[in-house]
């Protein structure tokens, strides 16, 4: 399928704020990306006309209860059947930062047994506590299931920035071990925080910037089509976005975050 026939829908509500740069990232790859307000999507009832659904970063509805919880509930309430159909058709869904929180709150991730009615994991308050904006190192851990990282070799270390106050990924304490096992066995683990050499962050700040369990920064569903991550790939798209690009003669054209958009676009183009 021609890339310019691919349609990405970027969902926004009051408080969403990374929609423009996320749209730009898809457009750079020749994809038609549209930013749509939730009420507009609900009204026009055309969710299934899109090929990719994206929940971008921000503070949806102010994040006044658990981050992402209200958007997750209102999206499910308004578009439950269509959302289910979207997932079942294997159409990719991406959640970045607040979007990752939404996917977890909506039961779309990790979705061990399909879409869950209740959140199976949480993105809890950072440890150390507080909002942090900084660049982190991520190790790609996925063996090929995730359609958003197909172009990234397993084991590759990537750089992206995080900017959040609630990003500490955790499973229920009593089933932490078994959940992790499942995550790994299903090839749902996608990114872990690490140091510049790719060694696990070992829970240490600032390499693990939020105290995430097992250094988990991004996961996908068992089918590899729904993917959420706390770091912002759209802020690591061009070379001039790197924090130390001035070290070189001139910035490189594109950097790591682009690979995520490139992977999913290629996947959709090949499939259609």
């Amino acid at each position: 399928m021609d890339r310019n026939n691919i349609k990405a829908c970027i969902v926004r509500v009051g408080g969403t704020n990374c929609d423009a740069e996320t749209k730009r990232s898809f457009e750079e790859l020749g994809v038609k990306a549209e930013v749509r307000h939730l009420s507009e999507i609900a009204k026009s009832n055309n969710l299934l006309e899109f090929d990719i659904l994206v929940f971008p970063g921000g503070f949806s509805f102010g994040d006044y209860v658990r981050a992402g919880a209200i958007l997750a509930k209102s999206f499910s309430a308004k578009l439950n059947r269509r959302l289910k159909a979207f997932v079942e058709e294997g159409k990719p869904i991406l959640g970045i930062c607040n979007g990752f929180q939404v996917l977890v709150e909506a039961g779309l991730l990790p979705a061990f047994n399909g879409i869950s009615k209740y959140p199976e994991a949480a993105l809890a308050t950072n440890l150390p506590i507080g909002f942090r904006c900084r660049w982190v190192y991520l190790k790609h851990e996925n063996s090929g299931k995730c359609v958003f990282t197909k172009k990234i070799p397993k084991g590759k270390v990537l750089r992206m920035p995080i900017a959040h106050a609630e990003g500490r990924f955790m499973f229920p304490k009593d089933s932490e071990g078994s959940c992790l096992e499942r995550l790994v066995d299903n090839d749902q683990l996608v990114f872990r925080y690490c140091d510049e050499q790719g060694r696990g962050a070992g829970g240490k700040y600032p390499y693990n910037p939020n105290g995430s369990f097992y250094g988990i920064a991004g996961i996908c569903n068992p089918e590899g089509t729904v993917f959420g991550l706390m770091p912002h790939p759209e802020r690591a798209f061009y070379g001039w976005q790197l924090p130390d690009w001035t070290k070189g003669e001139k910035p490189s054209e594109f950097v790591d975050g682009r690979l995520i958009f490139e992977s999913v676009v290629e996947h959709v183009a090949a499939k259609l």
């Binding site: 990374c18 740069e21 909002f131 904006c133 920035p161 900017a163 912002h232 802020r235």
Partner: peptide, 8 residues
């Protein structure tokens, strides 16, 4: 503690 990257 300030997001200086948003908008990319």
């Amino acid at each position: 503690t300030y997001d200086h990257e948003v908008k990319g």
